[in-house]
């Protein structure tokens, strides 16, 4: 079981993609959520992994399920929800996306390199 949203500098899951890359959640119907109060756990039936997800990461994933977005579009949407400045949310979103990508929860639709 892995904890999401504590991004570290572990290995990338593949070639890094440009900031214009659109992130999508493949087969969101194969993500099973279970609410545990302070946090939620999600089972990814594609990977067989279970992840602990804090509220911000949960929201970010929900937004990407709603519609695929670039990092900056996701930052804008989250900043709007949290009523926080984008400059503050941006780095968090970057870290979350890196971790989601590493765990295979999201996949880049467009690669610009």
């Amino acid at each position: 079981m892995t904890a999401v949203a504590k991004a570290d500098d572990r290995q990338q899951s593949g070639p890094s993609v440009g900031p214009l890359s659109i992130w999508t959640v493949p087969s969101p119907e194969r993500l099973l959520w279970h609410d545990l109060g302070a946090v939620a756990v999600v089972f990814n039936a594609r990977s067989g992994d279970t992840h602990v997800v804090d509220p911000l990461a949960h929201e970010a994933l929900a937004l990407l399920v709603e519609s695929p977005r670039t990092a900056s579009a996701l930052t804008a949407a989250l900043a709007d929800l949290l009523e926080a400045p984008e400059a503050e949310v941006g780095p968090k979103v970057e870290a979350i996306l890196t971790e989601f990508d590493r765990l295979g929860l999201i996949f880049p639709l467009v690669t610009v390199h």
């Binding site: 279970h34 545990l36 109060g37 302070a38 756990v41 089972f43 039936a45 602990v52």
Partner: peptide
């Protein structure tokens, strides 16, 4: 607390990786 309880009991489930979704639902 619930999240700790979930993580602990999952850790004790020997074959939970082999049961995948079935295991997750049962643990929840």
């Amino acid at each position: 607390p619930k999240h700790e309880a979930f993580a602990m009991v999952r850790g004790a489930a020997v074959n939970c990786d082999r049961l995948g979704e079935t295991a997750f639902r049962a643990l929840a």
